[in-house]
């Protein structure tokens, strides 16, 4: 099957409801830190689903995937465009480091990317420049397996 890519994408988007009926499911969550002060004065930080965020708040984008089928699924790529109001900060401690992009086309470690400046020169990309975050899973996901990937960001 050699459909041109855009047509294929369009077809799948239309054909697939947000929570796919197929064997691979992906769920997105946005968590934020909730600090609670205990009676002894210690501060406990819990991650809770973000409901109320203000500029400067740290948020964690979590992508969970699950193979609900019985066959292994390979070449899994998760791509999360970074919303415009969000500034990427880095991978979460518990997560594999993603490749990032500053233009939605070229992906790689942040240190390898450059951005074009107004005067035509280029400069090293910084976390604020990141537009897309992407993980390629090296190994096929067996039937019934699941995993979670996440990155940290801040509300601009």
């Amino acid at each position: 099957m050699h459909l041109p890519m855009p047509a294929l994408l369009l077809a799948s988007v239309i054909a697939t409801p947000a929570l796919a009926a197929g064997p691979l499911q992906v769920t997105a969550k946005v968590l934020t830190e909730q600090k609670t002060r205990a009676a002894d004065g210690s501060v406990r930080v819990a991650l809770v689903p973000a409901r109320r965020v203000v500029p400067g708040d740290r948020v964690i984008f979590v992508l969970g995937y699950r193979n609900t089928g019985s066959q292994p699924i390979g070449n899994i790529v998760l791509d999360n465009p970074v919303p415009a109001a969000i500034a990427y900060r880095g991978p979460s401690q518990s997560s594999a480091a993603p490749d990032v992009s500053v233009d939605g086309k070229t992906y790689g470690p942040l240190a390898t990317l450059r951005v074009r400046t107004a005067d035509g020169a280029t400069r090293a990309a910084g976390p604020d420049d990141v537009t897309n975050v992407r993980w390629r899973l090296a190994n096929a996901v067996p039937g019934g397996a699941q995993g979670q990937l996440s990155f940290q960001a801040v509300l601009k």
Binding site: M1, L8, L9, S12, V13, T16, A18, L19, A20, G22, P23, L24, Q25, V26, T27, A28, K29, V30, V53, F61, L63, Y65, Q71, I73, G74, N75, I76, V77, L78, D79, N80, P81, P83, A85, I86, L155
Partner: peptide, 23 residues
């Protein structure tokens, strides 16, 4: 602030894509 992730994978020799829920 709307977030939707896309997931592409290969099954039965063909590339497929699913979108996550939207937060």
């Amino acid at each position: 602030i709307v977030n939707t992730a896309a997931l592409t994978f290969e099954m039965n020799g063909s590339a497929q894509q699913v979108a996550s829920n939207t937060v």
